[in-house]
């Protein structure tokens, strides 16, 4: 039975899709059978971040409407056998997502995978609602910035009231905070809120701190989840988050921006 995890934030542009790709790939690297689903109907992007945009034939909406089988719509990652993506439709309207349809697809995926990761669209409307509705756990992606923290707080309220678990009175959806685009240098200068500040405000357990890093843009340029770049700070921070998601106790380290080694620095100077 798979665990269903929603990657959500309320605010757009904070790193939900990057996080979905990185955590999904990270779990698969650790041997877990994982599928990532794009819930952003009409604004499909997870396929690009995962680097399989040219292999999309059928999508989530086709499966919901019975035009394709789930196995036809799932795309296997070229690098990792146990990582799949279910892309969404780029042309359809978000109303094509229905409770019944989403539930049926998730039920089917639950039996075949260890982790089902739902990439929520920004906002709190239909797509976002359905992405979180069936979740067992949630990763709330937040930037250390006022509008992002405010939106995350709003989303936490929805997770505790507008999900299946909440409506059925079951154990609450377990929410984790993932702080992204964190810049220790700006924190030291007092220009950016500290991890502790955001934690104090949102009061949910911390899954990880992803440093602001050029590696993230590079990874999206290449269509390769950032966790594959095991040398980068962002890649390592995501790998740590994956371990914590799997229940391991790992010390939290706020990795700064990339540091050049002495040798590289010398080379850079003479270049």
């Amino acid at each position: 039975m798979a665990k269903i995890i929603v990657i959500t934030s309320g605010k757009g542009g904070v790193g939900k899709t990057t996080t979905t790709a990185a955590l999904g790939a990270g779990l698969a690297m650790r041997g877990k059978k994982t599928v990532v689903i794009d819930f952003d109907v009409g604004l499909r992007n997870l396929d690009m971040i995962m680097g399989c945009e040219r292999r999309v034939v059928f999508d989530f909406i086709n499966v919901i409407q019975g035009d394709a089988r789930l196995s036809q719509a799932l795309i296997k990652n070229r690098r990792l056998e146990n990582l799949s993506i279910l892309p969404t439709s780029q042309t359809r309207d978000k109303d094509a997502l229905t409770h019944q349809g989403v539930e049926k697809v998730l039920d089917e995926l639950r039996n075949d995978f260890d982790y089902v990761i739902c990439d929520s669209p920004a906002g709190i409307e239909r797509g976002a609602h359905l992405a979180m509705y069936y979740a067992d756990e949630a990763v709330v992606v937040t930037n250390p910035e006022v509008s992002s923290v405010r939106d995350s707080d709003r989303v936490l309220g929805l997770l505790s009231s507008k999900t299946r678990r909440a409506e059925k009175g079951e154990e609450a959806v377990k929410a984790h905070l993932l702080l992204t685009r964190y810049d220790p240098a700006r924190v030291a200068k007092g220009d950016m809120m500290k991890v502790e500040d955001v934690l104090e405000i949102l009061s949910i357990p911390l899954l990880g701190i992803i440093p602001e890093s050029p590696t993230v843009l590079k990874a999206s340029n290449l269509g390769s989840p950032v966790v594959f770049d095991e040398q980068s700070n962002a890649g390592r921070a995501y790998a740590d988050a994956v371990s914590r998601l799997m229940g391991e106790q790992i010390e939290m380290r706020a990795l700064g921006p990339e540091r050049r080694g002495l040798f590289q620095r010398l080379r850079w100077r003479t270049a």
């Binding site: 910035e145 006022v146 923290v149 405010r150 707080d153 709003r154 309220g157 009231s161 924190v187 200068k189 007092g190 220009d191 950016m192 809120m193 500290k194 500040d197 104090e200 405000i201």
Partner: peptide, 22 residues
């Protein structure tokens, strides 16, 4: 007060109200 401290205070006040309404 640094701008980060101001951000934190503003959020704490605002969210206290927004949570009430929830």
């Amino acid at each position: 007060a640094s701008s980060a401290e101001t951000a934190k205070e503003r959020l704490q006040i605002l969210l206290a109200h927004e949570r009430q309404d929830r």
